[in-house]
């Protein structure tokens, strides 16, 4: 079987003329998963406006199978932490993450969620990076990141989804299960 990354849909070249598709279960499931990433509507600050712009006209995140922003964590696969997380907000972010069903992915969008950004030194009430409370898969820098950068972040999440192994509970090998606190 050819490398899945060479294929447009990542389904392998197992299709025959009789309409039979031969592929690995992993590949099939990962393909469906990465083609319908449902992010959670979770705008915190300035970055949320760019996240909205990514979902709206001009950038149109639906083209990449990631359109439906869900209002509830229970229906979401991807948490885009878009904006500054304050200490007051941190327990809520953690709870929302816990409420998401597995497999779940987290994207830290913007400088504030990556490290505290402009608030790192004097921001007494700002959490210095969201990775202190939830495990982060992809970091998107910028203040705020352009919509193109957010889309690139989504592609990285999709790449990560492609590498999932169904029976391997540790997922992707290097993903920490224990939260960094």
């Amino acid at each position: 079987m050819a490398d899945i990354h060479d294929q447009e849909f990542g389904l392998g070249d197992g299709a025959t003329q009789d309409g039979i598709l031969l592929t690995r279960v992993d590949q099939l499931i990962n393909w469906t998963r990465k083609s319908s990433v449902w992010p959670m509507t979770f705008g915190l600050a300035c970055c949320a406006i760019e996240m909205m712009a990514t979902g709206a006209s001009s950038y149109d995140i639906d083209r990449f199978g990631s359109g439906p922003f869900r209002a509830t964590p229970r229906q979401a696969d991807l948490m885009i932490v878009a904006g500054t997380v304050s200490h007051k907000m941190a327990p809520r972010v953690k709870r929302l993450y816990d409420q998401m069903p597995e497999p779940k992915f987290v994207m830290a969008m913007g400088a504030c969620t990556v490290s505290g950004g402009p608030y790192i030194k004097h921001g007494y009430h700002v959490l210095k990076g969201v990775d202190r409370i939830v495990p982060v898969d992809v970091y998107v820098p910028g203040c705020p990141p352009r919509p193109e950068a957010l889309l690139e972040g989504l592609f990285r999440i999709q790449e990560k989804m492609e590498r999932e192994r169904l029976l391997d509970k540790t997922r992707c090998g290097a993903r920490p299960k224990v939260l960094v606190e």
Partner: peptide
């Protein structure tokens, strides 16, 4: 500024 808040390190710089 507090060094830690609810166990999370606050002053990092």
């Amino acid at each position: 500024s507090p060094d830690r808040y609810h166990g999370i390190k606050n002053n990092v710089v």
